[in-house]
Each structure stands twice: as C-alpha cells, then as structure tokens.
C-alpha cells in the first residue's frame, strides 16, 4: 500500500522565513537595542543553572526573576565599583611606568643594535621603538576620545539590561510557546532541537568560561599580592580576560606581567616566582578547571577552535572572540543536521 503525503504549506514556510528575516535585520539595524538584549539573553542563559536550583525550593517565577535580576546586578556591579577604585589607582601608577617602559625599550634596542653592528658589521636602520611608542600614544588618545561615549553606553545598558533580563527570565517560555505556533509542522521538531541545543551550548559555555576566568584571575591576583608584585589587581583582571581566549590567551596574559618584571628594577619584584605563579594557575586551569567545566560542552578540533577565535576577533572584537567557540559548536551541529537531511542517518 502506498500513501500520498505532503510536507507542509508553502505559505506557512514563507511567513516563517519572513519573520526570521525581519528579526535578523532588526537585530543588525538596531544595535542600541540588540546589544543590551543580546547581553541580557546571554546573562539569562548563564543564570539558568541557578534558576533551576531556585525552582527546586519552589520560588514563584516572578519573584525568582526579581531575585535573579537584583542578585546578578549586585554580583556584577559590586566588583566593578570596588575594582574600579583599585584599578584606577593602578592605572595612575601606570602613567609613571610607561616612560620607564619606553626608556627600557630604547636601552635594550640600542644595545641590540650595538651588538649586531659589532658582531656582523650591519647597521639596523629600522626604528621599531618609535613606532611602538607612537602606536601606544595614539591608542591611549583614542580611548580618551571615546571614553564619554563608552561611559554613556554603559550607563544606558545598566538600566536596560536588568529590565530585559527580568522580562526574559519571566516571559521567555510564554514567548517561546507563541513563536512555536508559527513554525511549520515539518520543521518544528528540528527547529526546537536546534534552538534548545544552541541555548544549552551557549549558556553553559559562557557560564563555564566565566567561572574559569574568575578562578584564574583570583589565583593570579592573590599570588601577586602575596609576592608583593606591582599592579596585582590589574594583572589579575588581564589574566582573567585573556583566559577567555584558548591556547594563546594565557600567554597574552603573562606578557604584561613579564614586561613589568623586566622593567621594574625593584628587588621585591620576584620574576621567577611570578613566572611560577602563572604556570601553576594555568596548570590548575588546564588540568582541573577546563576538563571539568568547559571541554564537555564543546567538542571541537583545536584547529577549528583557533580559526573560529581568529574569525570572531576579526568580525566582533573581544565579544566575537568570546562567542566564537559556542557559535562554532552550533555551526557544527547545523552542518551535522544538514548532512543527515541530505545523506540520511549513517
């Protein structure tokens, strides 16, 4: 017996595609809404494990959303407020260090030039030190030019993000159920599966990375404070931020500490101990934190990880680097689904 089957109504599919396009275009065209909404959405995904935990103690959804918004606002703003004070002080100190760094670089470069001339009788004509100093000055200037704009955006986000976060936490399921109604029948299961996988991978990855960066940053800051190393908070924050980048991140985080150690002639600055501290922090990260928290979430080849981070940095800067890995994992899932659709389940 054979049966006549048809897949779905073309009009429903066209309407669904149009809605998707409308939301995608709106997202790109309205960055002032899209960015805080994106941040709130990622925060909501990050808060999911805590949300599940609070459900088990039977907290009502509305109160849960309020608790989580207030809690996360406090959690993120308290260290910023406290940290800004320390980091500002350290940044002021950095002003005195920069000329010191310039002198150090010039001295080392002159020495190198002299040795090359002595040994190989070759005159180096390039002057990279001037270029480095010029590059540094230009970038510092541009930061100050854009600073009011950045502060304005942060203040605006500070008001909008908690608002978005509250409504996402409270009404996400209602909106999801309504949106499900417009998805054509033949793709509804697959679309829901992809949406769920994307949310799970993205949320879990960002949450795990946040925990990992906090652990590394705390170890480095505490260790540097105990060693009496200068700029402990700034270097700890930098180590935490660069830790988000896989493979090369820890090296980027270590370079500023090494430069400060080399420039600073202070006998308290223990270069060997500092190197050992960075090594221990990264060993703890690689041997304990990463395998337990992050590696299970994204199962990607190292080459794909590196390429996706490079592409992420090219298109979206630091945010692009952070989101590139879960996005790559999601693209892998999409390719797998497309493969199954075209060639069948192997």
């Amino acid at each position: 017996m054979s049966i006549k089957m048809f897949k779905t109504d073309k009009y429903k599919m066209a309407f669904f595609v149009l809605i998707c396009l409308f939301f995608s275009v709106s997202f790109v065209m309205l960055p002032r809404i899209a960015i805080p909404f994106g941040v709130a959405y990622v925060l909501a995904l990050m808060l999911r494990p805590i949300q599940r935990m609070l459900y088990s103690v039977e907290v009502k959804k509305k109160f849960l959303a309020i608790i989580m918004v207030v809690g996360s606002t406090f959690l993120f703003s308290y260290p910023i407020v406290q940290g800004v004070k320390t980091i500002t002080e350290e940044s002021y100190k950095m002003e005195y260090y920069l000329p010191k760094l310039e002198t150090y670089l010039r001295q080392k470069y002159a020495l190198l030039k002299y040795e090359v001339k002595e040994r190989f009788n070759y005159e180096i004509e390039m002057n990279p030190v001037d270029k480095i100093v010029e590059f540094g000055q230009e970038n510092t200037r541009s930061i100050f030019v854009f600073l009011p704009k950045i502060i304005g955006s942060i203040l605006e986000w500070g008001l909008i993000i908690p608002l978005f976060l509250f409504f996402i936490l409270r009404d996400e399921r209602k909106v999801r159920f309504q949106l499900m109604k417009i998805i054509p029948n033949n793709i509804v299961e697959r679309m829901y599966y992809l949406y769920h996988s994307f949310n799970t991978k993205f949320g879990d990855y960002i949450f795990a990375k946040f925990i990992e960066a906090t652990i590394v940053g705390t170890i480095i800051t505490t260790g540097l404070l105990l060693l009496g190393y200068p700029f402990a908070f700034l270097l700890g924050l930098l180590a935490a931020l660069t830790n988000i980048l896989p493979y090369v991140g820890p090296i980027f985080g270590f370079i500023p500490a090494l430069v400060i150690g080399l420039v600073d002639q202070n006998p308290n600055t223990t270069l060997g101990a500092m190197t050992l501290l960075y090594l221990i922090a990264n060993i703890i990260d690689l041997a304990l934190v990463f395998p337990l928290l992050v590696s299970k979430i994204v199962n990607l080849h190292p080459i794909i990880v590196v390429v996706s981070v490079i592409l992420g940095s090219q298109f979206g800067g630091v945010v692009g680097m952070i989101v590139s890995i879960p996005l790559a994992a999601f693209v892998k899932l999409l390719i797998q689904e497309a493969y199954i659709e075209l060639y069948g389940r192997a």
């Binding site: 049966i3 089957m5 048809f6 897949k7 779905t8 033949n186 389940r345």
Partner: peptide
C-alpha cells in the same frame, strides 16, 4: 495527509 513524524527523522 500531512506528515506528523517521519520514519528515520530524529
């Protein structure tokens, strides 16, 4: 005649 679920699909 619309398919609800199809054999072989996830």
């Amino acid at each position: 005649e619309e398919i609800v679920i199809e054999e072989g699909d996830a």
